[in-house]
């Protein structure tokens, strides 16, 4: 069973509907006692990093998430939920993240080598696969739907499973051990997104 961690800042509806369409058992909750029963987790997120971390911490979920990761249960962060997995973010002032993956969340530059760049990075962009992972099994290319203004700056190349070219190399899929993340919304990224969700379910189910 998969648990969607509900801390009031996610597009829960479309993620849960996507799981329903795949006939996956899931629960949506913010209560540790309920969440604890799950085999794997999805951390969604739409909005600002600082607000999200404040709410997570206040709800006691920061330590809960660190605990389940230490127990080796799979975790998938989506969009802001992926950014929260990293060390810190410069959005609205420096804020500490969950530090489950190494790297910093920084603003997408609005100019690169004299060319202006539209921010948010909004629309369909193709993935360049960087490292093999069970999350990307059977996927060698394809388009995903991005909508974000901040991206992950990391020196740990092995955590980058796929990137998208937007003037800068935008980390699109990340992963290390049992912790995964997608910058795009898989539930809004057509076939490729659903394939990634299916792979994640397989990871959770231990297939």
């Amino acid at each position: 069973m998969i648990a969607i961690i509900d801390y009031g800042m996610g597009n829960l509806y479309s993620v849960s509907k996507a799981l329903e369409r795949m006939n996956v058992d899931y629960i949506v909750s913010h209560e540790e006692a309920v969440l604890e029963k799950a085999d794997g987790y999805i951390l969604p997120g739409v909005g600002a990093f600082k607000d999200a971390m404040a709410i997570l911490t206040e709800a006691g979920l920061t330590s809960f998430i660190q605990k389940i990761v230490a127990e080796d249960k799979p975790l998938l962060g989506i969009c802001l939920g992926m950014q929260l997995l990293f060390d810190e973010s410069e959005e609205n002032g420096l804020t500490k993240g969950l530090s489950l993956l190494p790297g910093k969340v920084v603003k997408i530059p609005d100019t690169i080598e004299g060319n202006s760049l539209k921010v948010p990075h909004m629309g369909w962009n193709d993935l360049n696969i960087r490292n093999q992972s069970p999350l990307l099994q059977g996927i060698d290319s394809g388009y995903a739907y991005f909508v974000h203004s901040y991206y992950i700056d990391t020196e740990q190349g092995d955590t980058l499973l796929a990137t998208a070219d937007y003037g800068v190399d935008v980390p699109a899929v990340v992963g290390k051990g049992n912790v995964y993340g997608t910058q795009f919304h898989p539930e809004k990224s057509s076939e490729l997104g659903l394939a990634i969700l299916k792979n994640y379910i397989k990871i959770v189910e231990g297939e």
């Binding site: 509806y13 479309s14 509907k17 996507a18 329903e20 369409r21 739907y145 909508v147 919304h185 539930e187 809004k188 990224s189 057509s190 076939e191 997104g193 659903l194």
Partner: peptide
């Protein structure tokens, strides 16, 4: 629509 569609 959200339940059926996998595009934004």
């Amino acid at each position: 629509v959200a339940a059926q569609l996998a595009i934004p």
